[in-house]
Nucleic acid binder design. Structure first.
Length: 417
DNA sequence: TCTGGGGTCCTAGGACCC
DNA sequence: TCTGGGGTCCTAGGACCC
């Protein structure tokens, strides 16, 4: 059996952990740049704040309804996520950390356990230890565990845990679950399915496999199997990423190449740092630039480019250099740029690094990168940068409503007190 | 004025091989 | 006039997820 544990309104719940005053009041958390609503407490949901709402359109509502607003604080959320995961590891070794607020657990050889009770215990442990509320769904496949999780979230009397552990419950759940809420069915497929009178998950399982294969490919067939209780999506316990991105919208638009060059350098350096963090190297750097897509009356430009590095590396110096080369090739004068980013791919474990026959020194920058990382760890954010990065400039993001880093900068908090 | 960021997997078609 | 058949690998773009 699989279980999916999902933290309720995760970012909003994190804000509440160290701030008792807002535990029962409506709150929302905004995306980077204080752009959109990305997490809402139940109270805020009830007041009609939609997911993804542009913050500036809802300013008046926030004020009128006394909704407290927070900038996103990923240092805090990441740390609390780790704490939750540490607790989960006590209960099974087979875990997939699926996202910052969700994990799949696999229970193999737990036949003698009552899994519902076991998961109630997990839930209570997480709540007591971290103050983060969760819901847990249990089923024979990951997709059924997802469906069970929805049921656990929806019906209060279940105490946050529901198990689809009989055929009756499976049928009942699928007849209840709207097709658009099935894990793996997005907007596009929903539209096509509704046109074929498929409205519930159950209806989907009644389609013939041949038809599903023809219409929705192997993805559809896999989904059908999963809903029928036959596992087709494995637990993915690998934690190493296959691509790493650092991308940002700017506070305003910029026309100068020099500004973009500095941003790209900084994004690339951050990607390199993330690579070193997971002991990986890469050999492809993708760079992209965007104008403001919401300014429909202005001429738009988007371009991206893949730059192949002739060897695998995680050196900030190399990755920045190649990212800059990419920018030179796609930058066009005369546009007002609003967003840019760097993505690294072609990722391999550092210790399986493929040497290049003609590259002079494969570990050229290893020592200096180690020293940089150590200094930045010791003295805090980005004390040591490359010269292509502006020392004065940080992310230059609107973040007006940021909470303190309660768990990672607690010494600062004590000083403030 | 203001509207996020970071991922995975699949597929079709091109380029190449014998 | 007519010019095969069977593969693999890579990539861009789409669809989906949180």
């Amino acid at each position: 059996m699989y279980a999916l544990i999902d933290c309720n309104n995760f970012y909003a719940s994190c804000e509440r952990v160290f701030n008792p005053k807002i535990r029962t009041t409506p709150i929302v958390v905004l995306s980077n740049n204080d752009g959109c609503v990305i997490s809402r407490s139940n109270e805020a949901k009830k007041l009609g704040i939609p997911m993804g709402a542009p913050a500036f359109e809802f300013d008046a509502v926030f004020k009128e309804k006394n909704i407290q607003v927070f900038s996103s604080n990923y240092a805090l959320y990441g740390d609390l996520s780790n704490r939750v995961n540490t607790i989960l590891k006590k209960y099974t070794n087979d875990i997939e950390f699926y996202s910052i607020d969700e994990s799949f657990l696999r229970f193999t050889g737990y036949q003698q356990y009552n899994l519902t009770n076991y998961c109630l215990k997990i839930r209570e442990d997480v709540l007591k230890s971290t103050l983060i509320p969760t819901c847990i769904g249990i089923g024979a496949t990951k997709t059924l565990a997802k469906a069970a999780n929805r049921i656990a979230k929806k019906f209060k009397q279940l105490n946050g845990v529901y198990s689809i552990d009989t055929e009756d419950r499976r049928i009942k759940a699928l007849k209840w679950l709207p097709i658009e809420d099935v894990w793996g069915i997005g907007r596009r497929m929903t539209k096509r399915l509704k046109a074929k009178n498929v409205f519930k998950a159950y209806d989907f399982t009644q389609l013939s496999t041949d038809f599903v294969r023809k219409e929705f490919g192997v993805v559809g067939v896999r989904l059908k199997k999963e809903l029928e209780g036959v596992s087709a999506i494995e637990l993915d316990e690998v934690s190493s990423k296959k691509s790493i991105a650092t991308t940002r919208s700017f506070d305003t638009t910029y026309k100068e190449k020099s500004y973009l060059a500095e941003r790209i350098a900084t994004f690339a350096a951050t990607c390199a740092e993330k690579l070193r963090n997971q002991q990986s190297v890469c050999n492809v750097v993708t760079v992209f630039v965007y104008t403001n897509r919401f300014q429909e009356n202005q001429e738009q430009y988007y371009n991206s480019i893949n730059v192949t590095i002739p060897f695998a590396t995680n050196s900030s110096i190399e990755i920045v250099k190649h990212a800059q080369k990419g920018l030179q090739l796609i930058f066009k004068e005369g546009f007002a740029y609003k967003k840019a980013g760097v993505i690294v791919s072609g990722i391999y474990p550092e210790n399986e690094k493929q040497f290049n026959l003609f590259n002079e020194e494969p570990f050229k920058h290893r020592d200096i990168m180690r020293v940089m990382d150590q200094l930045n760890f010791k003295f805090g954010d980005k004390k040591i940068k490359l010269a292509s990065q502006d020392l004065e400039r940080t992310w230059k993001m609107r973040q007006n409503l940021l909470s303190p880093n309660y768990t990672t900068k607690w010494n600062e908090i004590l000083e403030v007190k």
